[in-house]
């Protein structure tokens, strides 16, 4: 500190001049920033997920205009088109719910989509076609953008005793309670679930055989599965935490891990619906809404599926086009 002062005093005018020049430059730069920042810019910043995301699949399947969904648009448009799978040029892509949410929370012009369970005060969920996303509107089917959380097991390999017991637990009403706690939408309708809700009685002692259970798949279901595993261990004191091997790399890896299961201890998770001709045993443990989110300071409160289609394909690029 004193040395700096001494230098300034010793150098006299010359150093003062330099310091003045630096200060001037910084002021000018800040001024330029401030000036530019004052210019109103209502360009929409489009935020999406990577192509494999279950959230994106659910979104692209529902968002449609004139009978064509975003997914179909992506598959059918001119393959020489620059943008990825039908999204407009210059769209931003993130590999996680967190990435999208952070972008929307910090960018005042951003629009994106995330799991309803992850919506908090840093982002604002829009009404879609006039409907607020909530447990009730998802269950009644009113809220259009939704998807199931799927639990899958191998069809060809018989499950080990402990994996079968864990699956029983996942199908139970106890598991449904955890689903509600974790802000997903509890699903009890046998038809929709592809399995009935059962009662689970914990085992008093460890079943025969190896106790390892491999859990693989969707990142969207991470919190839910974490809580489910915790509850299972709590109920069955013979089960060790280290018996669970959890690996989250996306819905498609969950499916391929189940397909490659030769031991019978893989529980797969996917956050988009299984096809009717699936080669796996599955049931839907919960429903989840995909919420369309904007910055909390945005004046926007609702949006239609047609508008979303236009925004994501690039027909609408400014917020002013939405209001009008």
């Amino acid at each position: 500190m004193y040395t700096t002062m001494a230098v300034i005093l010793k150098g006299g005018k010359k150093v003062m001049k330099k310091i003045f020049a630096v200060i001037l430059a910084i002021t000018l730069l800040t001024g330029a920033f401030a000036f530019a920042a004052c210019q109103p810019n209502d360009t929409i910043v489009v935020v999406g997920r990577e192509a494999s995301s279950g959230t994106r699949e659910a979104f692209d399947k529902v968002v449609a205009k004139d009978g064509m969904t975003l997914e179909e648009y992506g598959n059918e448009t001119n393959p020489d088109d620059d943008a990825e799978s039908g999204y407009r040029e210059g769209a931003l892509y993130f590999t996680s719910t967190s990435g999208v949410a952070s972008k929307v929370a910090t960018g005042k012009n951003a629009i994106g989509y995330i799991s309803l369970g992850s919506v908090d005060s840093t982002v604002k969920a829009l009404k879609v076609n006039g409907t607020e996303p909530s447990t009730e509107t998802v269950l009644s089917g009113e809220y259009p953008i939704q998807r199931p959380f799927v639990i899958m097991t191998s069809k060809t390999t018989a499950l080990t005793a402990v994996a079968a017991d864990f699956l029983n637990f996942l199908k139970s009403s106890t598991a449904q309670q955890i689903v509600t706690n974790e802000k997903a939408v509890s699903l009890t309708d046998e038809q929709q679930r592809n399995a009935p809700v059962t009662e689970y009685t914990p085992l008093t002692s460890a079943p025969q055989g190896d106790l390892t259970i491999n859990v693989r798949g969707s990142t969207s279901m991470a919190d839910l599965m974490d809580a489910l595993v915790g509850k299972y261990i709590e109920l069955n004191s013979w089960m060790q935490q280290s018996n669970f091997k959890i690996d989250l790399q996306g819905s498609s890896t969950g499916r391929s891990a189940v397909d490659a299961d030769t031991v019978g201890n893989v529980i797969g998770m996917a956050s988009s619906a299984e096809k009717a001709d699936t080669p796996r045993n599955y049931f839907n443990i919960a429903l989840d809404a995909v919420a369309v989110v904007v910055n909390p300071n945005s004046s926007l409160t609702q949006i239609t599926l047609e508008q979303l289609f236009d925004i994501y394909t690039g027909n609408i690029t400014k917020f002013s086009q939405l209001v009008g």
Binding site: N41, T43, V45, G90, L92, G107
Partner: peptide, 18 residues
Amino acid sequence: MYVMIPLFSGISPTADGS
């Protein structure tokens, strides 16, 4: 993401600093 991009978002023609 939290410091630099918001700083540049104001002067970006795309309305986002990325």
